[in-house]
Amino acid sequence: MTTESEQGHSRPDPSLSVIMSERRQLINLAYRLLGSLADAEDAVQETYARWYAMPREEQDAIESPGAWLTTVTSRICLNLLGSARARRETYVGEWIPEPLPEGAEWNTARSGGTHMDPADRVTLDESVSMAFLVVLESMTPAERVAFVLHDVFRYSFAEVAEIVGRTSAACRQLASSARRRIRASRATATPPARQADIVRDFKQVWEAKDIDGLIGLLDPNATVVADGGGLAATVDRPVVGGEQIARACVELAERAPLTILERTVNGQPGLVSRQDGVTVAVLAFDIAGDRIKHIWAVLNPEKLRPWTEN
């Protein structure tokens, strides 16, 4: 686990250095566990609230504050995952993890700050790609926590067991099951530069309302999943089939004037649609070979606030 060297009994206050230095790690962890930036912030905020609620004597008795914070955040996320499943049963339409813009940051206003702290940026890599997060959503809460802690953040199974409240052997099995899900979902790797070319080509033929061009870029069995959350007009079920998707894209382009921009979405090439300067959709792609297999379109305005430029 993350540990910090202690400076002796004369250190002024561990919360000023050790504690706050863990914030970036905690939000990275919480976002991967929850798939929601807002929920991740809340989980970390609750973790800090519990730390500061302890008497100073109890704080001093904790050998590794970083390990304590990680344990508490993980347990909070584990509990939230259970309640999130219940909430999503009443969610209107499909639920997609909240998309992250490149260099996503969190405003520190909740703690009295007025600026963005560079230490509060999510690390963008494969483990925050939309394809990866969607697979995580299919896991049980315990599977997800065990897998993310061990395979992404490299905690030992003994440490994971302490957090999850199961044996090391059980956590090993949970992570193994989660790993199989990840492997089964992975498509043939496409180099990032080629992914960007394909997304750029998709943007151009979409703007040109070129149905044949769109069909040529889409896998015949491609799917589009849209998340409006009941707050934006969208289809309630996935659209399946390259031709059906292409026709839907052209119909949308003819119905509403949109500005389509190339952007990085969860560390991968993606697109953003804007109307009158307001972001109305963020699109993430899963590409295999030279074809688009999956498109995730987030239209829920509550998930798009970080994407609207002021």
Rank of each mutant, 00 (worst) to 15 (best):
M1Q: 09
L136F: 03
D125G: 10
S273T: 04
R85H: 13
N107W: 02
S127N: 10
A84M: 15
A193Y: 07
A169M: 07
D42E: 11
E159Y: 06
T3W: 09
A146M: 03
V205E: 00
E6W: 12
R144C: 01
A146P: 05
A233P: 03
A38P: 00
N79R: 15
G213E: 01
A131S: 09
E143R: 04
A53I: 03
L136K: 04
Q25W: 04
Q45N: 09
G112E: 01
P191C: 02
R11V: 05
E58R: 14
W296P: 08
S185W: 06
T70V: 12
A232L: 06
R23I: 05
D236P: 03
T223I: 11
A232K: 12
D212P: 00
W68C: 07
N310T: 15
L174Y: 13
A104D: 00
S10V: 06
R179F: 02
A169H: 07
T190C: 05
N79G: 15
R181P: 01
A30V: 09
A49C: 01
A184I: 03
V148W: 06
R247F: 08
S127P: 00
G241C: 11
V265I: 15
E22D: 05
W206K: 02
T123D: 02
S138F: 00
L252A: 09
E57H: 04
T114H: 03
L149R: 12
D39I: 09
T108H: 01
P14D: 07
G289D: 12
Y48K: 03
T259G: 04
Q59T: 06
K203Q: 07
V225H: 05
T114V: 08
H294L: 12
R154F: 10
G216H: 01
I260G: 01
D219L: 02
I27D: 01
E254N: 12
T264C: 07
L271Q: 10
A30T: 08
S5G: 06
T2K: 14
V278D: 07
A226P: 00
G112Y: 02
E143V: 01
N300I: 09
D39K: 11
V134R: 14
E243N: 07
V152Q: 13
P141Q: 06
G216N: 04
I245A: 03
R110D: 05
R87T: 07
A256D: 08
L283N: 08
R110G: 05
R237V: 14
A178N: 13
Y155Q: 13
Q268Y: 07
G228M: 04
E89R: 15
D120P: 00
L80F: 10
E105W: 00
A67G: 11
V239H: 07
P238W: 12
R154Y: 12
V160W: 06
N310V: 15
I96D: 02
A61D: 10
G216K: 05
T140K: 03
S129I: 00
G230K: 08
I62Y: 07
D276A: 14
M54S: 03
A40F: 03
L136W: 02
P12E: 12
L231E: 12
Y48L: 13
T259Q: 13
R237M: 10
S185H: 11
A49N: 05
